[in-house]
Simulated scan of single mutants.
Amino acid sequence: MDHSVSLNFSQLSQEHITKLKDAFQMIDADGDGIISKTDLQEMLASMGKQNSDEVIEQMLSSKGSSTDGLNFPEFLSLMSGLSGEFPEEDELKQCLRNLADEQGSLNVPLDDLLQSLKDAGFANPEEKFAKIFKTFGSTQKTTSTKIFKGESFLATISDS
C-alpha cells in the first residue's frame, strides 16, 4: 500500500472507521473477511447498479496486488479516497423529508419509500435493498404499517 493511500486512511475519524467496518461487514455477504468480486456484484446490484466485470475488476485492482478481493484495511484505504463522492447527510435528510409525515419525522412508511425508488428507476427495490430494509425497518404495532427508520439509517452512515 503506498503512502498517499495511508495518509487518507490516517485522516479518518474512529467513528467513521467504525461505520466503514459496519459497511464492510454488510458488503462481505459470506463473512469471510474479504470483499470478493461476487460480494461487489451483489452489493452493486442491491443499489440498482449493474456494472461490468471490467468495472468491478478495476475496483478490486485499485487496492494493490492481491487478487482475492479487498480485506478491511484495503477497503478503508479505498473508501477514504472516495468519501467525497457520496451524498452529503443533508441531501439524504432532504430526500427522506420529502416522504416525511406532518411532524417531519425521517421515519417514513416503507411503501412510500419503495414507490419513490421505483419512480426513480430502481427495478424491484424490495429485493435490491432487502438487507437495508431488514436492518432499518420496523412495523408500527398500532397500525401494522411498515416503517423505514430513516433517522437510524442516517445515524449509522453519517459522521455526526
Rank of each mutant, 00 (worst) to 15 (best):
E89K: 14
D90A: 15
D90F: 03
D90W: 09
E91I: 05
E91G: 01
L92H: 01
L92W: 04
K93W: 08
K93V: 09
K93S: 04
K93E: 11
Q94K: 14
Q94Y: 14
C95S: 15
L96D: 03
R97G: 01
N98I: 02
N98L: 14
N98H: 15
N98W: 07
N98T: 13
N98Y: 04
A100K: 06
D101G: 15
E102N: 08
E102P: 00
Q103T: 10
Q103Y: 03
G104M: 07
S105W: 01
S105L: 04
L106K: 00
L106F: 06
L106P: 03
L106V: 02
L106H: 05
N107G: 04
N107P: 06
N107S: 09
V108L: 03
V108A: 02
P109D: 10
L110N: 01
L110P: 00
L110Y: 03
D111A: 15
D112L: 11
L113K: 06
L114Y: 07
Q115N: 10
Q115E: 14
Q115S: 12
Q115W: 04
S116K: 12
S116M: 15
L117K: 01
L117R: 06
L117C: 09
K118V: 13
K118A: 09
K118R: 15
K118E: 07
D119I: 08
D119F: 08
A120Y: 04
F122I: 14
F122G: 04
P125E: 00
P125M: 02
E126F: 04
E126V: 10
E126Q: 12
E127T: 02
E127R: 01
E127K: 12
E127G: 06
E127W: 00
K128Y: 06
K128I: 05
F129N: 05
F129Y: 09
F129L: 08
A130N: 05
K131P: 09
F133D: 01
K134A: 13
F136Q: 06
G137F: 01
S138H: 05
S138G: 07
S138M: 12
S138R: 11
S138K: 11
T139M: 10
Q140K: 15
Q140A: 14
T142M: 10
S144N: 15
S144K: 15
S144F: 12
K146M: 11
K146A: 13
